[in-house]
Computed example of a mutant assay.
Amino acid sequence: METTENPLRRAFFRLAETGAALSARYHRAQLLETKHLPPAGPVLLVGNHGLWGYETPAFFHLLHRATGRYPQGLAERGFFKIPLVKTLLPWLGGVEGTRDNALAALREGHLVVCYPGGAWETFKKPRHHYTLRWEGTLGFARLAARAQVPIIPFAGYGVDGTFVCPEDERWHVSLAPGEKYRVPLGLGLGPLPLPVRMTFVLGAPLLPPRADASDEQLQHFRERIASRVRHLLVRACHA
């Protein structure tokens, strides 16, 4: 989120904004069906997360370019336990992903981005590319019901192809109990991401569940959104 209250914060934001624009250009990123984005008022965007979350700055850049609004992203709570990261993330519009924080952002009229798969999707293994790992996740459905704001499903394609994930066990790192993840490699086996094209597609807004919706109704709503995202992924793939 843009701010003028702190010169250092503003300078860092501008630097990050430039980096996001360069990332979008490097990946020839495009955002389709922007007609679904409201010019004002709260809205919750829900969709798939890419490998290591690398696509987020380019996606946020495209959202801002389309609307003039700086989106806020619900970030993994664990990031806010890291001293430097917990300071910098809010400077870039990152919000610790608690229900209270999300409700506050929506009540303030923000455009809020939610990735229900969270870290399970960002640290996915190759066999899970472009699959939604939303099992047992009802948080975004409960949030939508409580906030009573429209939900816009979205999908990003190309977001799981930015790095190569080697099969060699020597490149595995442990980031969660019982899980080993492959260190992503880019061009020349270095950190530079592959120049794949990123395509993001937005779906039509959906009304939220009732504020008193049961868990069964919330589960049905979650599956409805997931189905829309999968459909949009197919469209993004062929765009």
Rank of each mutant, 00 (worst) to 15 (best):
M1I: 06
T3L: 10
T3A: 14
E5I: 14
L15G: 05
G19R: 00
L22R: 08
S23Q: 12
R25C: 10
Y26Q: 05
H36W: 14
P38Q: 08
P42Y: 00
P42V: 03
L44H: 02
L51D: 02
P57Y: 00
A58V: 02
A66M: 08
A75L: 13
G78R: 07
G78N: 07
F79C: 12
I82L: 15
L84Y: 01
T87R: 14
L89F: 14
P90Y: 00
N101R: 05
L106S: 05
E108T: 06
G118S: 09
T122Q: 05
K124C: 14
K125A: 13
K125G: 06
K125V: 05
H129L: 03
Y130W: 08
E135F: 01
L138G: 07
R142Y: 12
P150M: 10
I151W: 01
A155V: 02
T162S: 05
V164A: 10
E167R: 01
E169V: 04
H172F: 06
V173M: 11
L175Q: 11
L175T: 12
L175P: 03
L175R: 11
E179A: 11
K180F: 06
K180E: 11
L189H: 04
G190R: 14
V196D: 05
V201G: 04
A204K: 15
P208N: 09
P209D: 10
D215M: 09
Q217D: 15
F221S: 00
A226R: 14
R228I: 01
